[in-house]
């Protein structure tokens, strides 16, 4: 049996093209508010971050009183083992989050979309609820769940003779404990995105596949997953960005510890700027992270495009 991959039918798109100068003038007028807002709230902060990163500034003085350092802050970062450690932790955190969240979201999405059973809406709502609850509130609860020896997780494991896991209290488990929390909190959101992606796959394809004798797994591998390509690209990108930006649980639960094991770049930036008064160094970290993120996002998009 052969299942030929078919391109999804092209969505109807507006085909009208801009005509003469008058049309372009109106287009510019309509687009300009968005451009102005993006300039004010995106480009200006990015440029300001770059500008501060070239200076030494404690934030206690007016911004005009910064001291020029050139690329000194960037040079310091390259030689700083703490920054390298936080970069390493960030990469591990992002990889674990993506590796766990994306397959789990796809699996849950398939389970919520295909079987014809009742209560799917309730499950979907329950999964999405973890995303809606403020991180600060839920992080405190997870802190109690993770408490060593007397916490519920350790108590339950104790019934099976497992003890001394450590969770947030051990350098070997603290980062993975935060990853578990992140996955728990975000997987519902990605699941909803997967379900939304599944609704875009034409039912005809499955019907043809069934006529050709394809079972559920063959349909999944040959139709569902390839047709989810664009949705998956979006989910992976959002998952990476969300993982890189994680801050609240680290600030609340571990403060980068124990022994620097959960010290990730976003927390280091906050600490350098607001605790150490090194806004230039913090901005250099932030801008370096920004450049890395652009490279990562470009690489992911290129890889996904090649696959398609």
């Amino acid at each position: 049996m052969t299942i030929t991959r078919q391109a999804a039918p092209a969505a109807p798109v507006a085909t009208a093209k801009l005509g003469g100068p008058s049309d372009r003038k109106w287009a510019a007028i309509f687009v300009s508010p968005a451009v102005l807002i993006m300039t004010a709230f995106m480009l200006v902060p990015i440029l300001l971050t770059l500008w501060i990163s070239l200076h030494e500034w404690s934030m206690l003085t007016p911004i005009g009183d910064m001291t020029w350092r050139g690329l000194g802050n960037y040079a310091d970062l390259i030689g700083d083992p703490a920054f390298r450690g936080s970069m390493r932790n960030t990469i591990v955190y992002v990889l674990l989050v993506v590796a766990l969240t994306v397959p789990l979201a796809v699996l849950l999405g398939l389970l919520l979309y295909f079987p014809r059973v009742g209560g799917k809406g309730a499950v979907r709502t329950a999964l999405f609820a973890t995303y809606v609850i403020p991180t600060v509130a839920i992080a405190m609860v997870w802190g109690a769940l993770y408490a060593p020896t007397y916490g519920p997780f350790d108590q339950i494991l104790g019934w099976f003779g497992i003890s001394g896991v450590g969770w947030l209290s051990s350098p070997s488990t603290a980062l993975i404990s935060l990853v578990i929390f992140h996955v728990w909190q975000m997987v519902g959101y990605y699941t909803v995105l997967v379900v939304a992606g599944l609704t875009q796959i034409p039912g005809d394809l499955y019907e043809v596949a069934r006529v050709d004798g394809a079972g559920f797994w063959r349909q999944t591998v040959s139709i569902t997953l390839p047709m989810l390509g664009r949705t998956m690209t979006f989910i992976v990108l959002v998952a990476v960005v969300n993982a890189v930006q994680v801050f609240d649980p680290i600030y609340i639960l571990t403060q980068g510890g124990p022994a620097g094991s959960t010290d990730i770049v976003s927390f280091s930036i906050q600490r350098a700027a607001f605790q150490y008064g090194l806004a230039g160094q913090a901005s250099a970290m932030a801008f370096s992270l920004f450049i890395v993120m652009i490279a990562v996002v470009a690489a992911i998009m290129a890889a996904m495009r090649r696959r398609r």
Partner: peptide, 23 residues
């Protein structure tokens, strides 16, 4: 026991709980 030592952002957490609970 190192795992009994951690504090959180509120400067509370396991280190305090363990002393309070007689551990």
């Amino acid at each position: 026991v190192p795992e009994m030592s951690t504090a959180n952002a509120n400067t509370t957490g396991p280190y305090l709980d363990n002393f309070v609970n007689g551990k």
